[in-house]
Write a protein that binds this DNA or RNA. Sequence first.
DNA 1: CCCGGAAACTAAAAGGTTTTCGGAAACGTA
DNA 2: TACGTTTCCGAAAACCTTTTAGTTTCCGGG
Lengths: 334, 334
Amino acid sequence: MAGRRATINDVASLAGVSIATASKALNGRQDVRDSTRQRVLAAAEQLAFQPNALARGLLSGQTRTVGLLTSDSVGRFGIPVLLGAEDAFGAGEMAVLLCDARGDAIREQHHLRALLSRRVDGLIVVGESTDPRPSVSRDLPVPVVYAYGPSDDPGDVSFVPDDVGGAATAVHHLLALGRRRIAHVTGPEDYKASRDRAEGLREALAAADLPQAGETLWGGWSQRWGRHAAEMLLMAQPDVDAVFCGSDQIAAGFVEAARERGRRVPDDLAVVGYDNWEVLSTETRPALTTVDMNLERLGRTAAQHLFAAIDGRATPGVHRMPCRLVIRDSTAPA
Amino acid sequence: MAGRRATINDVASLAGVSIATASKALNGRQDVRDSTRQRVLAAAEQLAFQPNALARGLLSGQTRTVGLLTSDSVGRFGIPVLLGAEDAFGAGEMAVLLCDARGDAIREQHHLRALLSRRVDGLIVVGESTDPRPSVSRDLPVPVVYAYGPSDDPGDVSFVPDDVGGAATAVHHLLALGRRRIAHVTGPEDYKASRDRAEGLREALAAADLPQAGETLWGGWSQRWGRHAAEMLLMAQPDVDAVFCGSDQIAAGFVEAARERGRRVPDDLAVVGYDNWEVLSTETRPALTTVDMNLERLGRTAAQHLFAAIDGRATPGVHRMPCRLVIRDSTAPA
DNA sequence: CCCGGAAACTAAAAGGTTTTCGGAAACGTA
DNA sequence: TACGTTTCCGAAAACCTTTTAGTTTCCGGG
């Protein structure tokens, strides 16, 4: 804590020049003699002068600040997106104003007003799931980009992981390993993520002209469900040679139960997870082959496109970002 | 996106009053006739007027914004603290400016300048571990509160979990269950968190006049280490009847390996974890009894104290926040 | 010595809001 | 009617910076 902060006025006085000259000297503009510039810089240094971003923003109409609105508590998926965005902004001297609506539409509206009142240059809305969410961009004076959870308005700019493609990649991997009887255990059917991944599996199998081993098993996202599903599946369909799980949690439960039942992973049974949640995927035995949604990159890309939109170069539509297969020890040739 | 934003000037014109009157009407001040106030409010509504927080802040010197500086990537422990802080601020109409220094001192300094330039009213610094970190508060014009990782300057305000007390609580629980041969498996010795928890264990055992079962096993924070430690410990000291683990990851690995070795948890062996990281603590078999550091509350408390400090009522020193034992199925009477 | 042009500098305005202070109108009292 | 009081409203200053549009200074050339 210290006294009143120095203004450019103080700097100018100390350097014995006008405010205008001080401003130019500090901002590296022309029209100021080199000796004068040195005097001003020294004065600024001595007074620990920090230009007031409020005054600057008031004048320029640009705050170099963006709002980051998370619809639900910053969760598992929001974090990497946030990190990526923060990363992209940090490089460009932008700052991030964080707001968490906790799934409450009223609170969201409230935060929205607060952000606009603070004159943010743009907005990133991070969804908690890949299900479309109500658009917030109607008549907003700033550009908005949606990340992870897309807007329900196709005129908005959204970035989502390509779950269909990610699942297909996983299944192609299993097929390439010579697996032919592939089952699917996944999360609740009312999640778009579940449905998309099941869809990707279906497409990949159809392309290979193979049937799916049994019906898709819909359940929860938990390890508990993974264990339970393993028991059911290994009982009902003892001849499956591969399982594609809708999440790493499910896969972790699955390999654990399979192991206890004496199935060797990956020899008897190849298992692929989803999310690449490292605390799980690298710590199971064996470590999980899994699909990484590249969320940090997604966040970074969203941020970069927000920049573009702020500059008037928007790119409307839902952009599907490719996922990446991370191969570990839970898959091997048949 | 829409056209130019309405200013209070536009509102005043539309309502047919001066800006002074408009301001008073909008801010619910006295000295304005009720009918006039209604006219102004209607005009503001019609123009979707949002007061410019920059202009307001420039005048008042208060931005109602705080900076949240995380020393390392917002991680496992930073998130709940952040959430708690965001929660406390949200209620008071404050906003949070998020900066992530990624463990880089240069970047931290850079973010610090940016935050001060934006005239934040205060600062929360979130550490990545409970080890003290360099103070950042020298000659800063705003108050600073440290959360999770304390400042190395005792004159600063810091909030940290009481790991010594948390560990002691865990051990008291084991003692109350009739366990007498208690071992300790924990993380790296160069973490203050490890040392504090070992210290809590030592104190609790000393108070009960009992020796510790074997030396403390220092290792990593991983499940892998938990499994490995279980193998070593159960071989070397087959008669231990309880294990206090320094983290849930270690405990998860430990119970898994113990289970495979035929030890029944909790009957033969009671196990307590630390952190209450729910993805692990509720999904192991059995679910883990563990110590919860109440990080969200810690963040909220830190934020509230920052408020107080902004109002000039600082509370210097390191404040240790109590931990809470969460009893699940991995502990039972001997 | 004067002029033209470039270089270096400054006064003033602009940006949006709040607050202070003074003025005007309305009203009650002598 | 004259005067004091209350109520309501508006002009202007203040917050801090950048930019525009001058103004002064300096120099070389005529």
